[in-house]
């Protein structure tokens, strides 16, 4: 059983997946941030691999990626840093990014190096289902990695079921049709979350895009298993140099724990 599956066995409500960009704010801050997130109470970590052309991301996350690239972050450097991730980081870790850098690195080598570093799963929003089924899915599974697909309010029930069948770990429910970091009201999305809940999916559902405070967190969690927070946390990191304190304060403002 994967580390992600184990997590959801022990906790299936208000699960908190925190996003951060590798190499941001500093080249060497990746592990420091991951440790701060774990200590602060995150249940999973989604580590963004910076890319020059991140189509699904809004300005805040893109700017963090641009800074990380300026800092000198590359996939090779990232895997070097992640060698020391385990056992200090005990919670599940997913890598999130875009196809082009992964293809350049070599898709299979990427999966092998990720698995060797103790990474648990991948999120590649621009890897389509057809290519996953015919080419890449087998490589991902061969290395024991979970793969998380996205669904949106526009995704039909039939397609959600197909995506659920191909995904493992959890399903990433994009809260509304948008890029990351838009201020959307989760209250309006209850019908969508309920629809997902009613489909009897095999994977837990985490909601991402637009979760930024206690209210959006509670609204998103009502009919789902938890949330993914990115933009609001990247903004919180900009507040000051003390990563651990900023992280603790931010997560507390969401979970009140």
């Amino acid at each position: 059983m994967s580390r992600i599956n184990k997590l959801f066995e022990s906790k299936n409500k208000e699960v908190l997946n925190m996003y951060c960009t590798a190499g941001y704010p500093r080249l060497d801050s990746t592990l420091e941030i991951m440790a701060a997130l774990q200590e602060g109470g995150a249940d999973l970590i989604e580590l963004g691999m910076p890319y020059s052309d991140p189509l699904a991301d809004g300005p805040v996350i893109q700017a963090s990626g641009t800074k990380a690239l300026e800092n000198g972050m590359t996939l090779a450097k990232l895997f070097e840093q992640l060698e020391k991730m385990r056992p200090a980081i005990r919670i599940p870790v997913l890598l999130m990014g875009y196809m082009n850098p992964v293809l350049q690195y070599g898709f299979e080598k990427f999966c092998a190096d990720a698995a060797a570093a103790g990474v648990d799963g991948l999120i590649l929003p621009d890897l389509p289902m057809y290519e996953f089924e015919t080419e890449y899915g087998a490589l991902i599974r061969r290395h024991g990695l979970d793969f998380v697909f996205l669904v949106t309010p526009e995704t039909s029930d039939e397609r959600v079921r197909r995506v659920d069948a191909l995904s493992s770990g959890f399903l990433y429910a994009v809260s509304s049709s948008s890029t990351t970091g838009k201020d959307k009201n989760m209250g309006d999305q209850q019908a969508y979350f309920k629809r997902l809940q009613g489909l009897g999916l095999k994977n837990p559902v985490l909601v991402g895009f637009g979760i930024r405070d206690r209210q959006t967190f509670l609204d998103a969690c009502r009919h789902t298993n938890g949330v993914i927070i990115g933009t609001a946390y990247i903004k919180a990191l900009d507040a000051g140099p003390d990563i651990a304190a900023a992280t603790r304060t931010f997560i507390h403002s969401i979970t009140r724990k």
Binding site: Y51, S52, D53, A76, N100, P101, L103, Q104, Y105
Partner: peptide, 18 residues
């Protein structure tokens, strides 16, 4: 590589940045 939604030839760094 992959740029703007299709697989093609792409000018990029060794790290896959366009």
């Amino acid at each position: 590589g992959v740029l703007h939604g299709s697989k093609s030839l792409v000018m990029q760094t060794a790290d896959g940045q366009v």
